[in-house]
Simulated scan of single mutants.
Amino acid sequence: MYLTIPQLTSALAVRDLTDPAQGPHAMQELLDGVISRLTQLWDIPATTHRTTGLVATADNYDRLGYAPDDVTRDQRYSRHASPTVMLRSHTSAGIPAVLDSLAPVADPYDRLHVLPGLVYRRDAVDRTHVGTPHQVDLWRLKARGLLGEDDLHRMADAVVDSVLPGAHWRAVPATHSYTSHGMQIDVQTPAGWLELAECGLVRAKVLRSSGLDPRRWCGLALGMGLDRALMLRKGIGDIRLLRSPDPRVSSQLLDLQPWRPVSLMPAVRRDLSVLCGPDMDEETLGDAARDTLGADADVLESLVIRARTPVEQLPAPAVVRLNAQPGQVNLLVRLTLQALDRTLTDTEANALRDRVYLALHEGPVLELTG
């Protein structure tokens, strides 16, 4: 399941909406506001680190304390280029290099390190998920001083108030491999409580792995998904709109003013019946669908498994018709297709349906729309 060269090239070509060098976007204003709030709160400088999405697997996992058998390492959910190199699954993969750079520091030190950018995942397809979301890691690293849970709560409060001024939030205990006293930050929205970020105190073992003495060094770590943060701030309901070239949409993504709805084109639904391995789920199917659609992937609004039936439970005529094999499962998958800039014709929808079907179906008998 290693990435091919075309897949790797395509992934690295995706525009990073946090990077001013790639054009202006409201996400940059949102991030700048968070950085300014934290540096003013603590009266410290900030350094922003921008690195390629291609990282050492050890930096993405091992040096951040992930266990060898952690499910997040599974190639079904992360995107590996080789046994030792991968597309980062979180912006925290840049932290080991930041910590390494601090080893020679002998003087008192206190700085905010900002690591924004794209991360790469095999994810479900719906209005709130995408295979290349944006994240930011915000790490306050300090030498010759103490940082504790009160500092962490003040950090969380400042981030929430910057992203969603006046919003109510709550802290839910959470466990992370590279922090202690971890918590998930949920914000109250009209749709209920939603996760905005996660944070914690930097673990001593992570500091030690870069040669930093935890008796001298300490830190606060916070990670936040910027797509969701921007969607909540502006009131946007479909993540695909963040990249839409439609002038009615793109003109609204240059600032943080509330979203003014535009009329979207009607959605088209197509159902598929596919045979596949028993470990396939909406994340792996969604990634395969995005990959096969390529430039047309933004037309796929959602992919949902509506039913899952082991071959052994299928009626005998169906097993014969499909030439199904023991151990396979039959999935009923619903595709929702919706172009943001035009109405899809039945012919276009059927052609997209067939492309996805061929990518997902693992049986010898094909049921194409023709």
Rank of each mutant, 00 (worst) to 15 (best):
D157I: 07
T179F: 00
A171F: 11
R203M: 08
L212E: 00
W169R: 13
L102A: 07
T189N: 07
D150T: 14
S180G: 14
A197L: 15
W139A: 12
G182F: 04
G148D: 14
D157C: 09
A156H: 09
S177H: 09
A106S: 13
G192Q: 07
D213K: 08
P116W: 00
G192E: 03
L194A: 13
A171D: 08
G219W: 00
V163F: 01
A106V: 11
D126W: 03
H176T: 02
A204Q: 06
R111C: 13
Y109F: 15
V163Q: 02
A191E: 14
Y178G: 04
D150E: 11
E195H: 08
V119G: 03
L220N: 04
I95W: 10
D110T: 04
V163H: 04
L147D: 01
G200K: 03
L164F: 08
P165E: 01
L164Y: 06
Y120W: 05
E149A: 13
Q135E: 13
S162Y: 08
D161C: 08
D151V: 07
L207K: 05
L201Q: 12
H129C: 04
A103S: 13
V172I: 15
V163I: 09
L118G: 05
S180E: 13
R203F: 02
R216D: 09
A174P: 05
L201C: 12
G219Q: 00
L141T: 12
R216Y: 07
L201D: 09
V187N: 10
Q188W: 10
Y120F: 12
R208W: 01
R121W: 03
A158Q: 11
P108Q: 05
D161K: 10
L164A: 04
I95T: 10
W217F: 07
W139K: 08
V172Q: 12
T132H: 03
S210T: 07
I185M: 03
P165W: 02
R121A: 05
V202M: 15
S177T: 05
D107S: 14
R208L: 10
I185N: 00
L147W: 00
R215G: 13
S101P: 13
V160M: 07
T132Y: 00
D123W: 03
M155L: 15
I185D: 00
V136H: 04
A204K: 05
V119C: 06
D213R: 06
G145W: 09
V163R: 03
G219M: 01
L118E: 02
V119M: 02
P96G: 00
Q184I: 03
V114M: 06
P104N: 00
P108C: 04
A171H: 12
V202N: 05
A143T: 10
S162E: 10
A97I: 10
A158P: 11
L138V: 08
E149G: 06
A174N: 07
V159M: 11
V163E: 01
V172S: 10
W169A: 10
V160E: 03
P173R: 01
G148M: 10
V163D: 01
R144K: 15
V206S: 00
D186H: 12
A97V: 15
S180D: 11
D151W: 02
A167D: 03
A171G: 10
G200D: 01
R111T: 06
L220I: 08
C218G: 14
K205W: 02
V202C: 09
Q188L: 15
A97H: 14
A143I: 06
H113A: 07
